[in-house]
Design a protein around this nucleic acid. Structure first.
Lengths: 341, 341
DNA sequence: TAAGAATACTAAACGGGTTTAGCAAATTAT
DNA sequence: ATAATTTGCTAAACCCGTTTAGTATTCTTA
């Protein structure tokens, strides 16, 4: 109904200068020696009229938007949405809001998103980088834009990065299975060059070799439908009937894996033991409960925010050094990976 | 490194007027009778220099931000994050970005978020309203700001709204259990006044009465920790040992419920049948698979966007009518709710 | 008592686009 | 040949804050 009022309106009504209002509203009244009388008069007026600064104008002038851009692979994924939630909470406390976007791992879309954020003068970025985005990221680096890579990094480009030790996560999972006496430990992963995936694969392979076992790996292409994934996993298991344990590289694969095992009438863990990478709230109440490599969500989000803010406040925009936080995941052992007596 | 260039820069370099550039960039060259020669000269220059419009300045002038504000209860919740994902996709196609926030069901925080969105000149809002936010929403209504309520509505205020028929959803769940021969069907819900919860409770009660059964309801306060919730549910079941089926009003409650049942060594569905409200990807692969009242996610997000855009483009800002879309949920019957032979 | 300093504000430029009104030259109509 | 259009483009206001430089007035201080 009543249109939004501006500082000009207040200036006119109170017959004072716009600058004075700006100083008062920004808490610089003391500093600018505005009398307390006038200060409270303005503040009262502002409250009475329910005045809200136009953040766009503010951002345009100051160049700061108080917005953080969050570029994740898929916000519907439990891992990313959980991190998003935790980040949001922390950013909010510092007066920052989050704009998010899902890349679907499409470098073209990601590049577009980065440009969109640029044009909105986002103050900092958190990016889960798809393959093929190296050029764009290198540009960000040149432009001295504060950003942090998350979940996976780009081996070719030295940037700030927060993630977990994926190699170690997969390794301890396999070691646990081996220690339980499983002999044919398979790995179902995505056919992906992303570091979080290649690191997991390397961790698996290393542990398999250390345990003098034979590797057995299924790489699922991104393009498959869920039903096709189930199909692939079934075939994979049938082709190697000795398989007595499977490490799934992602929750999504675990989900399809469970379906495949169910259809094959294989029991967990009697016929095939199972470990998932990334824990999930429901894993605890599965029948049997599912062992998982859990990422430290809170620590991850804390580090993400702290690294990003460090970079944002860093005078050294030249990045003579970069921040890397590699956190350790935790193996949460539940029934699904235990050798039945 | 090289700073961002502006239209003024281009104007200077090409020795033409800033307005000309604006027209060309906005595709109004024809309309404004700019010659094709000049048009392509500008376009080439823009591409060469990788010029990006400053969206802030644009929004400041036009009053449109091309941003939609999404205020959900908790972005980490699978239901909300899935909808967020689908909305994002649709909005993106129309050139809109999403800024999201989680309310944690705190009306004060929600009011703050709404104000933040206002000051950012967000073009439209999607709001899952906590209790006690009526005044703020009424204000939005007065201010003719386009917004849609989602998931729950405010009975006192006539607004646009998109959600499902919660009453019916709970009712068909109970009817299904009754038809399977269960006699002591309990309902575990949140102690909440929100419409989605009260509607579910009413649906439960109605179906129970229709089936000539006795209601048995547990209302969990928001304040409890997960462990406390488990405890409450255990006590609830022990207090009524005849209980042979439970309808959980939310995924979160179902999660704790599974744990409670597990600790009580009660089997699903032999000892207690179970239905969850809101489906979840993992329910399909539970052992046994879990029956659920599924919300039509795609349809919901489609309606949300279409209603919001209808409102945003509506000349009739006075809202002589409002849009209500109540979709039907679907009961997905799996093993957890079937009477064993 | 005049110069210097502090007080309490203000004017105006600025950020970077959009949009309205308008103008000079070329073209068409009469 | 002159008036009426059309063509092709521009000047300047505008959106709404922030910030720098400056002014008028009162208070100190030598």
């Amino acid at each position: 109904m009543r249109k939004k009022i501006s500082m000009d309106d207040i200036a006119r009504d109170l017959n004072i200068s716009k600058s004075t209002i700006s100083f008062i509203i920004n808490g610089k009244a003391k500093e600018m020696r505005i009398s307390e009388t006038l200060t409270s008069r303005v503040l009262d007026y502002v409250k009475e009229k329910n005045y809200n600064r136009n953040t766009l104008a503010q951002s345009l002038r100051t160049g700061k938007s108080n917005i953080i851009g969050l570029i994740v692979e898929d916000i519907a994924d439990a891992f990313f949405s959980s991190v998003a939630r935790l980040i949001e909470e922390r950013a909010y406390k510092k007066g920052y809001k989050i704009i998010y976007c899902s890349t679907e791992d499409d470098p073209a879309k990601t590049a577009e998103l980065i440009n969109m954020f640029k044009s909105r003068h986002v103050d900092g970025y958190i990016i889960t980088a798809p393959k093929g985005i190296d050029n764009e990221v290198a540009l960000l680096l040149n432009e001295e834009t504060p950003f942090v890579l998350f979940d996976r990094y780009l081996p070719e480009i030295p940037t700030d990065y927060v993630g977990i030790d994926n190699f170690w996560g997969a390794k301890i999972a396999v070691e646990h299975l081996a220690s339980q006496g499983f002999k044919h430990i398979a790995f179902v992963t995505l056919d992906s060059e992303q570091t979080q995936m290649t690191d997991r694969l390397n961790g698996y392979n290393t542990a398999i070799i250390d345990a003098s076992l034979l590797p057995h790996v299924l790489k699922i292409p991104f393009s498959l439908t869920p039903a096709q994934v189930v199909q692939r996993i079934r075939k994979f298991i049938k082709d190697e009937p000795h398989t007595d344990a499977i490490l799934f590289a992602t929750n999504y694969l675990a989900l399809q894996g469970f379906e495949a095992l169910h259809k094959l009438k294989l029991r967990i863990p009697e016929d095939v033991a199972v470990i998932g990478f990334d824990d999930h709230a429901f894993f605890k109440v599965f029948n049997p409960p599912v062992t998982a490599v859990a990422q430290p969500m809170k620590a991850l989000s804390e580090k993400l925010i702290s690294v990003l803010f460090k970079r944002m406040n860093d005078e050294d925009r030249k990045r003579t050094k970069h921040f890397r936080e590699i956190l350790k995941p935790e193996l949460i052992i539940r029934e699904s990976s235990k050798k039945p007596a």
